[in-house]
Design a protein around this nucleic acid. Structure first.
Length: 803
RNA sequence: GCGGGCGUGGCGGAACCGGUAGACGCGUGGGACUUAGGAUCCCAUGGGUAUCCCGUGAGAGUUCGAAUCUCUCCGCCCGCACCA
C-alpha cells in the first residue's frame, strides 16, 4: 500500500498520462449527443487568480460529468490576448506587447495545466495570433459589406487615462470600465457597428434564453431599453423651420410649456454663433461627462420660440444639459407638470407649469407622472390619460404632425480604438476610391512589430510609415491605411465559433463543425459581462446567422454566472492585499484540494469566502478518502457483508447526480463526505472487505472523478482498473437498493414535534395515524385532550390537532 | 430614486414542492492511540431557569403546519440612474 497521499507527484503523473493519451481531445461524432462546455477565456495578465480557478473548476466539473454521462464534450480554452495592459507594459518597461503577451500566455497555460482541467488543448486559440485575427478582420469586412460597419463623426466617450474612445457599454455610469476614470465627451470620427439594426431581435430573443439568469436578461433588456412613443414636429416661430421631438407621453401634449434641446443640437449651435455666452455654455455642457451632468439641470434660452402644433401657442426654446444627443431627436417637449426633470428645470428658470392630467389630487410640489383624467387639453378633456395617449397619437398621425415610433436606448457599438495592441481595422483610404475594405485574400493586415512606444501622442501605428502608406486595393494608387485598431470585444464576440475548427486557414470556421457543436450548451463566467461581451456575442451571432454561417440565433443556451472570490469581506485584489495565489495553494495542497474546496465552500453563483482552514479541511478529506481506499483494497475479502454500505453508496449516487444537474456542487461534495463517513463507520464497526464494499469504493471513486480528477484516477487504478476513470460511465443507482427499509416519521401535536417513529415506507395514512396515536409520548402530550383532526403526510409526518 | 437579490449556530453553508431547522465542513470541547503530537480515529457541539420552553433580521397574516407563501418595517449587497 502506498503510504501517503502525495498530490504533487500524483497529479503531475496523471497530467502527463492524460496528455500522452490525448484523453480530452474531441471530434465531431454524429452518433453521440454533443455537449459544448465553455468558460470565458481569460485575458493573459500573466498570473492566474482565484476567480479563474473557480470559473474553470466549475466548468471542468460540468465537462467531466457530461463526458461520463456519454456526451461528446467540446471543452476548449484560449486567450483574449489583445488589450491595453500589454501596451502599458511596453511603455513602462520597454517590453514589446507581443513578447509580453506570449510570455504571459506561456506562464498561464502552465498554471492552468497544473490544475488538471480537461481541455482539448489542441484547440487553443489566441486572439492576437494572425491566424485568428485574420478572421476578426474578415468579420469586420463582412459587417462593412452588410452595411453594419460605418464611420461617422459623433460625440463619443473618451477616456483620458486610456487615451482612447470607448463604447457606451464600456462607459457605464460615466466611467471607463477598465480603469474607472471619468470619461469626457469628444467629437470624433469613429467606426461603429450597427448593433441597433438588431435591437428588436436582441430584445425579443431574450425570451428564448430560459437557461440564463433572470438578472442578466433584465440587465440586457434595460440596456436595450425599448420604448414606444410619438415623434412629432414643432415649427420655429418666424422661420418655419421644423423641429422634431420624441415623446413617450403624447397624452401630455397640451402641457408643453417649452422645448429643450441637447447642447449638441445643430439649432443650438446656430444660435450660439451670434451669442458668445450661449457658445460658452454649449462648449462647457457638451464636454461634460455623464456624472457631472447629473449634478444639476442647467440651461439657457435660445431666444427663439416654437409653435405648438395643436394649440398654435408659442413656447420658448431652451438648450438644456439634461437633454441627450443621440437619443430620439436630441430635443424634447418640456412638460413640467408631468415630468420630474422638466419640473426641476422649470422651477429653476421660472418657466410655466401647466397641469393636464389630474390624478388623485391637484399637482403638488413634484411632477405627477401617473395616470389620471385629462384637463386643459381641448377636446380630450375628461378622457382617461391612457386613452388620451392613443387618441392624441391618432390625432397627430391623421393630421400629419407626427408618427408613432419605437426608440431604443441602445446605441451603435463604437469599435475603433486609438491603440496599438489590437486588430488593425482592415480599411484603406484612397484619394480616388474613398473608403475601401481590404479584400479577403489580402488578409490579414498584419500588425507591424517595429513601432515605438512613447506613451505620448497618438497611437504608434500612426507613426509607422511602412504600415500607413499602402496601395489602394481597388485602383492600385497610393493610399493610406486606417490606423485605429478594433475594440477587443470584437475578438471575443466570435471565439466560440473558432474553437470548432481552430486551425482552418481557409475560413473563419467550418460550417459543418459549427452546425454540430453550436450553440454552447453551458457557458460559465462572471456577471461583469452581462451587457458587454454577452450582448456583443449575441449580436455577432445574429450577423453570422444572417450571412448563412450558422443556424443558431443565440450562441449560449445556458449561462452560469459565478460569484466572486472574497477574502476578509472584500474581493481579492492586489490593492487590498488579500490575494491568495493559486500557485501557492496548488504547491502546498495540490490542485484537487484547491478545486474541492472551491466547489464545496459555496454554491457557484454566490460569492465565496476564502478560508485557509477550510482548505485544510478539504485536504484532510482527500487524505481520508485515500486511506480508506488504499487501506481496504488489499485486505482479504469476505463473501458477504457491507450491503448497507452499498445501499448508502447507491443513495449517494442518486444525490450527487441530482445535485450536479442543478450545479449544487457543494451539496454533492457533502453527500460524498457522508458516504466516506459511512464507510469509516462500517470499518470501525469491524466490517471487512467484501464485494459490496469493493463496489461501494468504486462508486465513491466514480463520484469523485468530476471534482478531484487526479485522486480519482489514482484510486481507480488502485482498485484494479486499467482504463481511465474519466472514460468510465457515470454510475446509475439501483432503485431497489436506494429504497429505505424504514422511514422516520415525525409526529406532531398541534404542530409541535412530540415523537419520531420508524415506520415501513408506503404506509397508509390511516395506519400512520393509528401508530402515531399509540405513541406513549403523543399520549402524554395530548394529556386527554380531544383530537379534533389528524393530518398525515405519507412517509413524512402526522400532525394531531386537538380541539 | 427605480429594479432585483439576500438576512438561518461562533464561521462557510444545508433544508429542491409549505411537512422532523441546522446536512456537510470549519472552529470548539472531550476521549482513544502515543515518548510526543498541531498526525489519525471516535464522541459531543443552536440557546435556555431542561420530562419542558425558545429559536431562521423585526412585526403581523394565511395554514393543521411557515426558513419557505403574503403584507409592513429594518439591515446588507448588486444592477440602473436624467434615454424624454
Amino acid at each position: 500500500m502506498e503510504e501517503r497521499y502525495r498530490p504533487g507527484e500524483l497529479e503531475a503523473k496523471w497530467q502527463r498520462r492524460w496528455e500522452e493519451q490525448g484523453l480530452y481531445r474531441c471530434a465531431v461524432d454524429a452518433a453521440r449527443p454533443k455537449f459544448y462546455c465553455l468558460e470565458m477565456f481569460p485575458y493573459p495578465s500573466g498570473k492566474l487568480h482565484m476567480g479563474h480557478v473557480r470559473n474553470y473548476s466549475i466548468g471542468d466539473a460540468v465537462a467531466r460529468y457530461h463526458r461520463m454521462r456519454g456526451f461528446n464534450v467540446l471543452h476548449p480554452m484560449g486567450w483574449d490576448a489583445f488589450g491595453m495592459p500589454a501596451e502599458n507594459a511596453a511603455i513602462a518597461r520597454g517590453v514589446h506587447p507581443a513578447r509580453w503577451t506570449w510570455d504571459n500566455i506561456a506562464r498561464m497555460r502552465s498554471q492552468l495545466k497544473e490544475l488538471g482541467l480537461s481541455y482539448d488543448w489542441e484547440r487553443e486559440v489566441a486572439t492576437c495570433h494572425p491566424g485568428y485575427y485574420r478572421w476578426t478582420q474578415w468579420l469586420f469586412v463582412l459587417l462593412y459589406r452588410r452595411g453594419l460597419a460605418y464611420r461617422k463623426r459623433a460625440a463619443v466617450n473618451w477616456c483620458p487615462r486610456c487615451a482612447t474612445v470607448l463604447a457606451n457599454e464600456q462607459a457605464e455610469g460615466g466611467v471607463c470600465w477598465r480603469c474607472g476614470t471619468e470619461v469626457v465627451q469628444k467629437e470624433l470620427e469613429q467606426w461603429f457597428f450597427r448593433i441597433t439594426a438588431h435591437a428588436e431581435a436582441l430584445r425579443e430573443d431574450l425570451a428564448q434564453l430560459s437557461g440564463w439568469p433572470e438578472r442578466v436578461r433584465t440587465m440586457q433588456e434595460n440596456w436595450i431599453g425599448r420604448s414606444e412613443g410619438v415623434e412629432l414636429t414643432f415649427r420655429v416661430a418666424g422661420t418655419g423651420e421644423e423641429l422634431a421631438v420624441f415623446t413617450t407621453r403624447p397624452d401630455t401634449l397640451y402641457g408643453v410649456t417649452f422645448l429643450a434641446l441637447a447642447p449638441e443640437h445643430p439649432l443650438a449651435a446656430r444660435c450660439a454663433a451670434a451669442d458668445p455666452s450661449l457658445a460658452a455654455f454649449l462648449a462647457q455642457a457638451g464636454g461634460e461627462g455623464a456624472r457631472e451632468r447629473s449634478l444639476d439641470k442647467r440651461g439657457m434660452p435660445l431666444g427663439m420660440r416654437a409653435v405648438h402644433p395643436v394649440t398654435g401657442e408659442e413656447v420658448p426654446l431652451w438648450v438644456a444639459n439634461y437633454v441627450l444627443t443621440g437619443y430620439g431627436t436630441g430635443a424634447v417637449m418640456g412638460v413640467p407638470a408631468h415630468d420630474q426633470r422638466d419640473f426641476e428645470f422649470a422651477r429653476r428658470y421660472g418657466l410655466a407649469i401647466r397641469e393636464v392630467i389630474r390624478g388623485e389630487a391637484p399637482l403638488g410640489d413634484a411632477a405627477y407622472t401617473g395616470p389620471g383624467r385629462m384637463i386643459n387639453s381641448g377636446s380630450f378633456d375628461g378622457m382617461p390619460s391612457e386613452e388620451a395617449w392613443e387618441a392624441i397619437a391618432d390625432f397627430l398621425e391623421r393630421r400629419g404632425l407626427g408618427r408613432r415610433q419605437v426608440q431604443y436606448r441602445l446605441r451603435d457599438w463604437l469599435v475603433s480604438r486609438q491603440r496599438y495592441w489590437g486588430v488593425p481595422i482592415p480599411i484603406v483610404y484612397c484619394p480616388r476610391c474613398g473608403t475601401v475594405p481590404v479584400p479577403e485574400e489580402a488578409l490579414p493586415v498584419l500588425l507591424p512589430e517595429e513601432v515605438r512606444f512613447t506613451g505620448e501622442g497618438p497611437s504608434p501605428l500612426v507613426e509607422a510609415a511602412g504600415f500607413v502608406q499602402t496601395t489602394c486595393p481597388s485602383c492600385g494608387g497610393p493610399a493610406r491605411r486606417e490606423t485605429d485598431t478594433m475594440d477587443t470585444f470584437i475578438c471575443s464576440s466570435w471565439y466560440y465559433f473558432r474553437y470548432v475548427s481552430p486551425r482552418d486557414a481557409a475560413r473563419p470556421f467550418d460550417r459543418d463543425e459549427a452546425a454540430y457543436w453550436l450553440p454552447v450548451d453551458q457557458y460559465i463566467g462572471g456577471i461583469e459581462h452581462a451587457v458587454l461581451h454577452l450582448l456583443y456575442s449575441r449580436f455577432i451571432t445574429k450577423v453570422l446567422r444572417d450571412e448563412g454561417w450558422t443556424d443558431v440565433a443565440e450562441p449560449f443556451r445556458n449561462l452560469l454566472t459565478q460569484g466572486m472570490v472574497i477574502k476578509d469581506g472584500a474581493k481579492m485584489s492586489k490593492s487590498k492585499g488579500n490575494v491568495v495565489s493559486p500557485e501557492e495553494i496548488v504547491a502546498r495542497h495540490g490542485a484537487d484540494t484547491a478545486r474541492l474546496f472551491i466547489l464545496f465552500a459555496a454554491p457557484p453563483e454566490k460569492d465565496l469566502e476564502w478560508s485557509d482552514r477550510a482548505v485544510e479541511g478539504a485536504a484532510r478529506f482527500l487524505q481520508r478518502v485515500w486511506r480508506l481506499v488504499q487501506g481496504m483494497k488489499d485486505q482479504p475479502s469476505a463473501a458477504t457483508g457491507g450491503e448497507e454500505l452499498l445501499r448508502a453508496a447507491h443513495r449517494t449516487v442518486r444525490r450527487v447526480s441530482e445535485d450536479v444537474e442543478r450545479f449544487s456542487f457543494n451539496t454533492a461534495v457533502a453527500a460524498i463526505m457522508e458516504l466516506v463517513n459511512a464507510a469509516y463507520a462500517y470499518r470501525e464497526a469491524g466490517g471487512d472487505r467484501a464485494p459490496a464494499v469493493d463496489r461501494s469504493l468504486e462508486l465513491l471513486t466514480l463520484l469523485l472523478a468530476p471534482f478531484v480528477p487526479h485522486l480519482a484516477e489514482e484510486l481507480w487504478e488502485a482498485l484494479g482498473h486499467e482504463e481511465s476513470v474519466h472514460l468510465a460511465a457515470w454510475p446509475a443507482y439501483d432503485p431497489d437498493l436506494v429504497r429505505e427499509a424504514t422511514v422516520e416519521v415525525a409526529v406532531q401535536v398541534d404542530g409541535k414535534l412530540r415523537d419520531r417513529l420508524q415506520l415501513p415506507p408506503g404506509l397508509h395514512t390511516q395506519e400512520m395515524e393509528r401508530r402515531a396515536l399509540a405513541s406513549e409520548k403523543v399520549r402524554h402530550a395530548l394529556g386527554g385532550k380531544p383530537v379534533r383532526r389528524v393530518v398525515a403526510v405519507p412517509d413524512r409526518l402526522v400532525n394531531i390537532v386537538t380541539g
